[in-house]
Simulated scan of single mutants.
Amino acid sequence: MTTSEHPRHRLDEVVHAPVRFSILAFLAGVDRAKFALVRDTVEVSDSTLSKQATILESAGYLEILKGHVGKRPRTWFRLTPEGRTAFAAHVAALRELAGG
């Protein structure tokens, strides 16, 4: 990559999708979050969140943690270090684009 390259070339296609961007933006501010909290915050269905989280996990940006609280199964999400870096780089590219 050269320094004269247009900022759009630094946008991450995995991060750029609106739902995935929203998931990463929310998780960037927390250590980890329950599935239901992310779903409600991002305002998507269970199936949409599950599909988008799987894409983020496949890219190495999200860790999906499964466990139980009592006898009830629970799912939590946590950004990986790579996910935090990718999100920050994507936001920086957007800011550069918006700033002209």
Rank of each mutant, 00 (worst) to 15 (best):
T85I: 08
S47W: 06
T85V: 10
A93V: 12
G29I: 00
P81Q: 11
E82G: 11
L37E: 04
G99F: 10
A25V: 07
K34S: 05
T3N: 11
A17C: 06
L56H: 04
L56E: 03
G99N: 15
E82M: 14
A53V: 00
R84N: 04
P7V: 12
L79W: 00
R32A: 08
T2L: 09
H68C: 13
A93S: 10
P18A: 12
L97P: 09
T75D: 12
H68A: 07
R72I: 06
M1Q: 14
V38W: 00
T75R: 04
L94V: 04
K66Q: 07
G67K: 09
H68M: 08
R78C: 03
V14Q: 05
K66D: 15
L27I: 06
D46V: 02
I55C: 11
V30Q: 13
R20F: 03
L97K: 06
G60S: 01
F21M: 10
R72S: 12
R39L: 03
V30M: 13
P7H: 10
V30Y: 05
R84L: 05
Q52C: 12
E96W: 10
D40G: 12
R32L: 10
R39G: 04
R95L: 14
F35G: 02
L56Y: 01
P7A: 11
R72M: 12
K51T: 13
R10L: 11
S4V: 13
S22E: 07
T2F: 14
A36M: 12
E63T: 14
P7F: 02
V38M: 02
A28K: 05
G99M: 14
V69C: 08
D40W: 01
P18S: 12
I64T: 05
H6Q: 08
S45L: 07
S47M: 08
A28D: 04
A17E: 07
E63Y: 03
E43W: 05
R39E: 01
L65G: 10
A86Y: 06
K66H: 07
I55H: 02
R95Q: 06
H68W: 13
V44K: 07
G99Y: 04
V14E: 12
T85F: 06
R20K: 09
R10Q: 11
D31Q: 09
L62Q: 09
V91Y: 00
L27P: 02
H6S: 15
K34P: 04
T85L: 13
A36E: 03
T85E: 15
I64G: 01
L56T: 05
T80L: 14
T3H: 12
F77E: 14
E43Q: 15
